[in-house]
Nucleic acid binder design. Structure first.
Lengths: 219, 219
DNA sequence: AACACACGAACTGTAAACAGTTGACCACTG
DNA sequence: CAGTGGTCAACTGTTTACAGTTCGTGTGTT
C-alpha cells in the first residue's frame, strides 16, 4: 500500500512478512492481543507459522507504528494507551489532516477532489447500517483519502504511520463510543468547506471534528 | 532514541542493529550512498559486518523512515527526492512543529520550556562558527526539542520519523543552501513568540520559518 | 529462618544455510 | 541476422541453528 509494486494483474502475492504484519495489526487493534501483553517471539512465530527472523522484521515495523512498545531488554509488549495519549494522537492527527484540507483548498481544480470525497462520504452513508467495524473502516478510509488526494506522499505516509495508533485508540475507548464520531453530516461539512476553497474555514472544521472525536473517545 | 531503554548509567550498549541503523542513516544522509543506488543485502552485511537478518531489520526501519524506496521485487534503493517532495516534506514538518508551538503556548508554566529552548538557541549560537554539519545538528536539535517539550510522545515520534527525510532534503539541496536557514535570530523569534503565549503568532512564525527554509532549499 | 550461591530455563541477538525467482548472456536455429 | 530456448549467476525470502544474557528457583549453609 505504501510504495507497493503495481499489481499489473489482479493477483498480488503477499509475502509472509506482510501477511504476518496484517495478522498482527488486526490482532492488536481488535484487542485479541490485549494492551500490556508481553509478546514472546517464539510463541508468535509458532502461532503464525513463520520463522523468527521473518517475524522480527514485522515486529520492528509494528514498533515503529506505535503499536508495540519496547521494554528493558528488547522485550516487546502491546502498547497501552491512556487518555492523555489518545488526546495526543488525535492532536497530531488533527495537525496532519488540517494540512491536508488546507492543501486541498489551494488546489487549482478542486472538482475532481470533491467528486472523490463525495463518493467516500457516500460509502460512509451506505455503511451507516452496517457493522460497527465496517463503519470504522469507511470513516478511516475517508480521512485517508483526504490525505491521499493532496498528492503529498509524505503526508499520506505520516498519516498511515499514525493509523495503527488511531485504531488502538478506538479499540481502547470501545467501538461504541467511536461510532458517535461517524456522523455523515459532519464529514459532509468538511467536504463543503473544501469546496468553498476557504482554507481557514476548512481547517477550523477539521480541528473541531478532531476535538469532538477525541473528546468522545476519552470521555 | 525512540522508545529506548532508560540509560541508567551513562553507558548505553547499543545493539548491532542500532549501530547498523545509525551507520546506514549517516551514509545515506551524507550522500555516501547516492540517491537511486540499489542496495544489495549481502554487500551491506559484509560492509557492516553483520548478518543479513539483522541488517534486514534495520532496512525495514529505514524504509519506513522514507530513506529507502522499494522496487519491483523487494529491491531497495536510496530514495531520490525532487523539489516537490522536499516542499511536501517541509509542509508536513511545518504542520507538526506548528502543533508543537501551539501546544507549548497553551502550557500552564512556560518558564521552564523557555529556559530549555533558550539553551538550545545558545547551542546554535555557539556552533555558529563550527562546521556546517555541526550547525545542522544544532538546528535539528532545536526543532526536535520543540517537539519534545510538548510532552506529546506521538508528536515527537512523528517528527523523528520525518527527520531522515529532512536530512535527505538538506543533503540533496546541498549543505551550503541549508545553512542559510540557520539564523539564530529567526529561532529566537520562535522562542519569543512562545513566550508571549500567543498561539496564533507562534504558529505564524513557525510556518513562515518553514516556508523560507523550503524555499531556500529548492530555489 | 534467612542469605548466598549455583544451576537452569526462557528469550533475545546473531549467524549461516537453503530455496525460489528473476534477468542476463550465449549458443542455436530459421 | 532476428528470434528463440536454455543455462547460469545474482538476489531476495525464509528457515534453522547457535551464542550470550538475564531472571527465577532451589539448595545448602549459618
Amino acid at each position: 500500500m505504501a510504495g507497493a509494486t503495481a499489481p499489473l494483474l489482479g493477483l498480488e502475492k503477499k509475502s509472509l512478512r506482510e501477511q504476518a504484519l496484517s495478522a498482527l495489526r488486526t490482532a492488536i487493534t481488535s484487542g485479541e492481543l490485549e494492551p500490556g501483553r508481553h509478546l514472546v517471539e517464539t510463541e508468535l512465530s509458532d502461532m503464525l507459522q513463520i520463522s523468527r527472523g521473518t517475524l522480527r522484521e514485522a515486529l520492528r515495523q509494528l514498533e515503529q507504528e506505535g503499536l508495540l512498545s519496547a521494554g528493558p531488554r528488547g522485550r516487546l509488549s502491546v502498547r497501552h494507551l491512556d487518555g492523555k495519549e489518545i488526546r495526543d494522537i488525535f492532536a497530531v492527527r488533527a495537525a496532519l489532516e488540517s494540512l491536508a484540507v488546507r492543501t486541498l483548498c489551494e488546489l487549482p481544480d478542486r472538482a475532481s477532489v470533491i467528486t472523490s470525497l463525495c463518493s467516500a462520504v457516500d460509502a460512509m452513508a451506505a455503511a451507516a447500517e452496517a457493522s460497527l467495524e465496517e463503519r470504522i473502516e469507511s470513516d478511516l478510509e475517508f480521512h485517508r483519502t483526504l490525505c491521499r488526494l493532496t498528492g503529498n506522499e509524505t503526508l499520506l505516509h505520516s498519516w498511515e504511520s499514525l493509523e495503527g495508533s488511531i485504531r488502538m485508540s478506538i479499540m481502547f475507548a470501545g467501538i461504541e463510543r467511536a461510532v458517535k464520531n461517524m456522523s455523515v453530516d459532519r464529514h459532509h461539512d468538511i467536504v463543503a468547506a473544501i469546496e468553498t476553497g476557504n482554507a481557514t474555514l476548512a481547517r477550523t472544521t477539521v480541528l473541531e471534528h478532531m476535538d469532538v472525536a477525541a473528546a468522545n473517545l476519552v470521555a
